[in-house]
């Protein structure tokens, strides 16, 4: 039975691209993997974290269309305008605000699952290390994003956070100066946090998430620790 012309066109386009990129092989390698017995809902925490990040990325891009990193009052005013007057502004901002907490919670649940399952052991240590870096980057996102509404809570929370950074011995004071862009909360602190929040860290997170996923696909996932090692009767018979 011939395909519908629209479906035919779709197949032609996909085939055209695949013939020139061989992407379907990579797609199959990534998507159709063997998973161990006992794989359950806990194994979705990683992808849940990824979707939380994607949600943050998409809502963040559109929030940036309205936000102004101006410490003399423009920042607060732009957030107020977005929240109170822009169509769906409060909704999208709410998604970004609550999504941030969701992502932090999911990251920790995902890490707890990996730890309790023992899934960080050989040969997956490198993926654990990448995960730790991703955890730190997520916290950096939470810290830098907290300042951007530029209300009293945001300001004082950042003052305290940068001062806590300064209490690290020897390098702490210099690190706090680097974070603030000076010895006091100054003119460029807000734009500095804004640049870190929307340019530096998201790129790093996306890149490391790619490496994280590549290693998951390459090494496979671990069975839950309560699954006993399955003795293959047929294999034993062959050997004997």
């Amino acid at each position: 039975m011939p395909l519908h012309p629209v479906a035919e066109a779709g197949v032609t386009v996909v085939d055209w691209i695949d013939e020139r990129t061989s992407l379907s092989g990579a797609g199959r390698w990534m998507m159709f993997r063997k998973v161990p017995k006992g794989t359950n809902w806990f194994y979705t925490l990683g992808s849940a974290t990824m979707f939380a990040f994607l949600s943050q990325a998409v809502t963040g891009v559109f929030l940036a269309m309205y936000y102004r990193p101006d410490a003399t009052g423009g920042a607060y005013e732009s957030v107020r305008h977005l929240t109170n007057e822009v169509f769906l502004g409060a909704f999208v901002r709410g998604m970004h605000l609550w999504g941030a907490s969701v992502m932090v919670v999911l990251v920790f649940l995902h890490m707890g699952r990996t730890f309790l399952w023992g899934a960080y052991k050989y040969p997956r240590e490198l993926n654990w290390i990448i995960g730790v870096v991703l955890l730190i980057l997520t916290m950096v996102m939470a810290l830098t994003g907290y300042l951007l509404p530029f209300d009293q809570r945001a300001y004082w929370a950042t003052v305290v956070a940068s001062n806590i950074t300064g209490t690290g011995p020897i390098v702490g004071p210099y690190l706090a100066d680097f974070l603030r862009g000076g010895s006091e909360f100054g003119a460029t602190t807000l734009s500095r946090f804004y640049a870190i929040h929307m340019l530096v860290v998201p790129g790093l997170i996306a890149a490391l998430m790619g490496a994280h996923l590549y290693l998951v696909a390459k090494l496979g996932t671990t069975a839950p620790p309560w699954k006993k090692v399955h003795k293959d009767v047929k294999l034993d018979t062959i050997e004997a």
Binding site: N163, G166, T167, P169, I170, G172, P173, A176, D177, S183
Partner: peptide, 20 residues
Amino acid sequence: SPRGPGEPLDGLGQYLYPAQ
């Protein structure tokens, strides 16, 4: 010289937190 909050200036503290 001015130091950040949380940085002690007694005993060992004054050496752990260098002047700017």
